[in-house]
Simulated assay, not measured.
Amino acid sequence: MGLVLPEAAAPAGSYVPTVQTGTLLYVSGQVSMDPDGALIRGRCGETMGVEEASAAAARCALAILAQARAALGDLDRVRRVVKLNGYVNSTADFGDHPKVINGASDLMVSLFGDAGRHARAAVGAANLPFGAAVEVEAVLEVAP
Results as ranks from 00 to 15, higher is better:
Met1Lys: 09
Met1Asp: 11
Leu3Pro: 02
Leu5Gln: 04
Pro6Arg: 09
Pro6Ser: 04
Pro6Cys: 08
Ala8Thr: 08
Ala8Tyr: 13
Ala9Val: 15
Ala10Gly: 11
Ala10Cys: 11
Ala10Lys: 15
Pro11Tyr: 14
Tyr15Pro: 03
Tyr15Trp: 15
Tyr15Gln: 05
Val16Lys: 14
Pro17Ala: 13
Thr18Asn: 06
Thr18Met: 05
Val19Ala: 10
Thr21Ser: 08
Gly22Trp: 09
Gly22Phe: 07
Thr23Ile: 01
Leu24Glu: 07
Tyr26Gly: 03
Val27Lys: 06
Gly29Glu: 07
Gly29Lys: 06
Val31Trp: 13
Ser32Arg: 07
Ser32Val: 04
Met33Arg: 15
Asp34Gln: 10
Asp34Glu: 09
Gly37Ile: 04
Gly37Asn: 07
Leu39Ser: 06
Ile40Gln: 13
Arg41Ser: 12
Gly42Tyr: 14
Arg43Val: 08
Cys44His: 02
Gly45Pro: 05
Thr47Arg: 11
Met48Ala: 08
Met48Tyr: 07
Glu51Thr: 09
Ala53Gly: 07
Ala53Cys: 04
Ser54Trp: 11
Ser54Pro: 09
Ser54Arg: 14
Ala55Asn: 12
Ala56Ser: 12
Ala56Lys: 12
Ala57Gly: 07
Arg59Ser: 14
Arg59Val: 00
Cys60Ala: 13
Ala61Pro: 08
Ala61Cys: 07
Ile64Cys: 07
Leu65Arg: 08
Leu65Asp: 04
Ala66Asn: 03
Ala66Ile: 03
Ala66Gln: 07
Gln67Thr: 05
Ala70Val: 06
Leu72Tyr: 10
Leu72Ile: 06
Gly73Pro: 00
Leu75Asp: 04
Asp76Phe: 13
Asp76Cys: 01
Arg77Phe: 02
Arg77Lys: 12
Arg77Ile: 00
Val78Met: 02
Arg79Gly: 05
Arg79Gln: 11
Arg79Pro: 00
Tyr87His: 06
Asn89Gln: 07
Ser90Trp: 02
Thr91Met: 01
Asp93Ala: 05
Phe94Ala: 00
Gly95Tyr: 10
His97Thr: 01
Lys99Ala: 01
Val100Ala: 03
Asn102Thr: 01
Asn102Gln: 05
Ala104Pro: 11
Ala104Asn: 09
Ala104Ile: 08
Ser105Asp: 11
Met108Trp: 13
Ser110Phe: 10
Phe112Lys: 08
Gly113Leu: 01
Arg117Gln: 08
His118Cys: 05
His118Pro: 01
Ala119Ile: 00
Arg120Ala: 03
Arg120Val: 00
Ala121Ile: 00
Ala122Trp: 06
Ala122Phe: 07
Gly124Arg: 09
Gly124Ser: 02
Gly124Lys: 10
Ala125Cys: 15
Ala125Met: 11
Ala126Trp: 10
Ala126His: 14
Ala126Gln: 14
Asn127Gly: 02
Asn127Ala: 15
Asn127His: 15
Leu128Phe: 08
Pro129Ala: 06
Phe130Asn: 11
Phe130Leu: 08
Ala133Asn: 10
Val134Gln: 06
Val134Tyr: 03
Glu135Met: 13
Val136Met: 05
Val136Arg: 08
Val136His: 06
Glu137Phe: 11
Ala138Phe: 02
Val139Leu: 10
Glu141Asn: 07
Pro144Arg: 07
Pro144Asn: 06
Pro144Val: 02
